[in-house]
Amino acid sequence: MKTIALVAALLCGWAGSVLAQVPEHCDLPGYLLFSDSELRRVAGAVRDHKRLDIAVLGTASSLLAGAEGASSAYPARLQAALARRLPGVVVNVVSLAKSRQTTADMTRELKKLLAEMKPALVLWQTGTFDAIRGVDPVQFRETLEDGVADLQAGGADVVLINMQYSPRTESMIHIGAYADSMRAVARERDVPLFDRLSLMRYWNDVGAFNFYAAGRDRALAVKVHDCLGRALAALIVDAAKLEEASGQAGQ
């Protein structure tokens, strides 16, 4: 009897861990995804055109390497999550992320991006590479603020995405000043900040993920990006007030 119970428990555990590879529900604390800033252009695009074009600007932490990298990275996962949450709306997320770009490098592409793609929303992930390169934080802040202003003037809503929580390198990369700058720019330009840093730290603290892992574990990265995509979708739906419009939808 005991053996059977043990085997059953092990099987359940095994099944559970297999299912956990693509979690149905990531733990998304509302207080970390709450924003006072509204995404009016997103709301307009969804309401008037039933279409949502999103561009992702960013660096290596918006990418995953490998054959299925593009479909596993958070921009693709965001598209999937938004499509689930907004039935009847065409959601198109284009990732323009490239590794080793400073914020100043990325601002050079803004005009072209606005002209060619006309996105309703630009997700701008940055900060990490600037911190690695030691770009002057004051300069970083000014560049980012000007860039966000340009995007807004060009007709796009903006969401800023800050750094990943990376416990193995946190004593080596001084991200504090850059994270503060991003928070300040978000407040200044009245755009939501997707606080990836706090969110991942929260997942680490509640034991959802072990970010101390050093090994070549791809499954972890895939899971984390899936959850980041869902979290972004939650933030966008909330900040554009799409929930009331389309009725309620699952995560």
């Binding site: 990490t128 590479f129 193995r168 390198t169 070549r216 791809r218």
Partner: peptide, 17 residues
């Protein structure tokens, strides 16, 4: 020492340090 064992694909960017 850190560089030797750190290969987590989630942190490809942070490894730039």
């Amino acid at each position: 020492y850190v560089a030797r064992g750190f290969q987590n694909p989630l942190y490809a960017e942070e490894m730039g340090i």
